[in-house]
Computed example of a mutant assay.
Amino acid sequence: MGQFFTAALDFPVVLLTILLVVVLVFWLLAAFGVADTDWVELDIGGVPATVGASLMVVFSWFACLAGTVLLRPSTAVGAAVLAGSLVVGLVLARLVMTPLKRLFPADPPASRLDFVGRRCVIRTGSVTQTFGQAEVTAEDGSSAVVQVRQPGGDALTAGTAAVIFDYDADGEFFWVAALWNESPTTSLGDH
């Protein structure tokens, strides 16, 4: 065990040992909710930067430790072992992260539930419990004409502003309620 610690604390492994300790402390803090895992993609596999960098440090550390133990390099050769271990770490991290990419989708897929809480403009002559259409504007500025229904007897006619308050997946329509003197293109969260 003493040889392990000696090798881990000698040049060039000590540089990666310091990074490995930082990675371990970060993930411990993240496990307790103190540190925020960064969901920015790193260009070595398309997974979060924290996962990619952590894998690269771990693989590089193991490669450097193995190279140092096997070669017992001088300082000049130690620098080459360090450089080689960084390349090995990068390649192995990329190989591991490629299948992991599926676990971290870049953006959630669009959902009809994204319209709930948004204002809409009625486009049909009226809206009842069984019939109606409205135009709603999505967060990205695109608009869609959707099927709407109302539970009450409000006078929802063409051009009337309404708010979408629920989605009925079985009937594939939205429930709406009247909004008076409101702009139809902003969401409830905008006020």
Rank of each mutant, 00 (worst) to 15 (best):
T160K: 12
A63T: 07
A79E: 03
L16C: 04
V127H: 11
A162F: 07
L15Y: 14
A158M: 09
G89N: 07
A80P: 04
L19E: 05
A31R: 04
V23T: 12
A169W: 02
V87L: 14
R123V: 15
T17D: 01
A93K: 07
T68L: 05
L179K: 07
V121G: 01
A155C: 01
G78S: 13
A35W: 08
M1A: 14
A144K: 09
A83G: 15
G132Y: 00
S54I: 09
W180P: 10
T6W: 00
S126R: 15
A31Y: 06
W180E: 14
L90D: 00
S183C: 03
V87C: 09
F174P: 01
L86T: 10
L65S: 08
V87W: 02
T37Y: 00
K101E: 09
L113A: 13
R102Q: 11
V47T: 13
V58T: 13
E41L: 12
S187V: 04
F4Q: 12
F62L: 15
V14T: 07
D168G: 06
E182Q: 13
S111L: 08
A178C: 04
L28N: 03
G33N: 08
L188F: 14
M1R: 13
P48Q: 13
G132H: 03
A66G: 14
N181A: 12
F62P: 06
D36I: 13
R94E: 05
F11L: 06
L86W: 10
R94H: 11
G152D: 14
L188Q: 11
F11C: 02
